[in-house]
Design a protein around this nucleic acid. Structure first.
Lengths: 214, 214
DNA sequence: GTATGTGAAGCACTTCACAGCT
DNA sequence: AGCTGTGAAGTGCTTCACATAC
């Protein structure tokens, strides 16, 4: 009971669970109520064994001979991932990209609510953006604590990203979604995911080039 | 000479090369001309052995006792990745997100040029968006061929993504960057990368939840 | 002395294959 | 008959450690 089991579940597994969840929700909408690992895997292009093994890290959710009751499995996955609650999110950087993130309609339905926004630019501070008042960076520590924000989205220029990450870490933030195109240093207990379309394109050209040469 | 060596280099390696390239470019800008795998790894939080191994798939680019001449290594990596040329890109879906992608200033400096945009909405077709005229989906096959476009960015609603991917595959497109939140079916020789902030957030909450409980 | 390049060892994730339940 | 859950086997990526080169 001393150590949490967090590290026994491979991170790749944790990254697949939200995909399972999303696909299962769609099956539900389509009227399916029970599903096999076979069927789910076909939709997601994952092997059935992979799905069963992934789920087995957390319990026994299926019925042999039948499959999984989708509604039940969805509930379980939402609980495992901590998605049976809402999460407050802060956006740092309210330029073109930051504004797009703030007004992106895909977060709220999934339980992620942007509740505050920060920027260094005095010309932006105090302005309303989609119902949010942009606040000064100096306010950040106090606001994050008061609002109990646990997740930050970084949308500042590359040159400022490291500084912003440092500040967020100081504020006790452990989860960051970073849109800035730079690898940032941080303590090992801070999770950062990067959204980086240019990196994605730059890997794809390797395969295009190879095909063209073949 | 029969089989291309594409499959001998692990995909994870290909995904790291653009990161190396970006970090190296920054070192160059800072005035560094020679670097060790140790120094590069420290910046990217990758082990030196990993970097040396990754590079060894493609040749010997360093000098023992010294390290790597950055300018030379950058050139080599750009060539390996096929980044020593420009690539034309098509955007499919010109809603809010599609417009943001078209006007994103980060692609062109890296050699990715959005040269055409498509949408089903007759109200959008013919309109100018950042210098591009939105075209009807029916034009797609002809335009992609004429312009020699090899990469497509999908920015349509989830419900239409599969259909669009199917059309792109029919057009011979092998590389797709997909912003729609759905896993799409496709032939194994078609590469799709997903940009999906919600999935990223949904994995992060697992660790937040675990910390809160511990 | 310093840092690369690389077989070999180590580790982690994936797939197999089958016992067990429905 | 069908499908899950899971040890065991298989695969592939990462790290080690050292010969080699400067």
């Amino acid at each position: 009971m001393a150590t949490e089991s967090s590290h026994e579940v491979p991170q790749v597994v944790i990254e697949r669970l939200p995909q399972y969840l999303r696909a299962l929700s769609r099956f539900l909408e389509e009227g399916t109520t029970v599903i096999s690992s076979q069927q789910l895997g076909a939709r997601l292009q994952v092997t059935p064994a992979q799905i069963r093994k992934d789920l087995s890290y957390f319990g026994r959710f299926g019925k042999q001979g039948r499959g999984y009751t989708i509604l039940f499995l969805v509930e379980q996955l939402r609980h495992i991932l901590g998605l049976d609650q809402t999460w407050k999110v802060a956006v740092v950087g309210v330029g073109r990209l930051g504004r797009a993130i703030i007004s992106y309609p895909g977060f709220a339905p999934e339980g992620f609510h942007v509740v505050c926004a920060f920027d260094t630019d005095p010309a932006l501070v105090g302005k309303l953006t989609d119902g949010l008042t942009v606040q000064a960076m100096s306010q950040m520590a106090a606001v994050l604590r008061r609002e109990d924000v646990k997740i930050a989205i970084v949308a500042v220029p590359a040159a400022h990203a490291q500084g912003v990450v440092d500040q967020l870490v100081t504020c006790g933030i452990k989860s960051i979604l970073c849109y800035a195109p730079v690898a940032t240093q941080r303590p090992s207990d801070v999770h950062i995911s990067y959204i980086d379309p240019v990196l994605a394109l730059q890997s794809m050209t390797y395969y295009l080039k190879a095909v063209a040469a073949g």
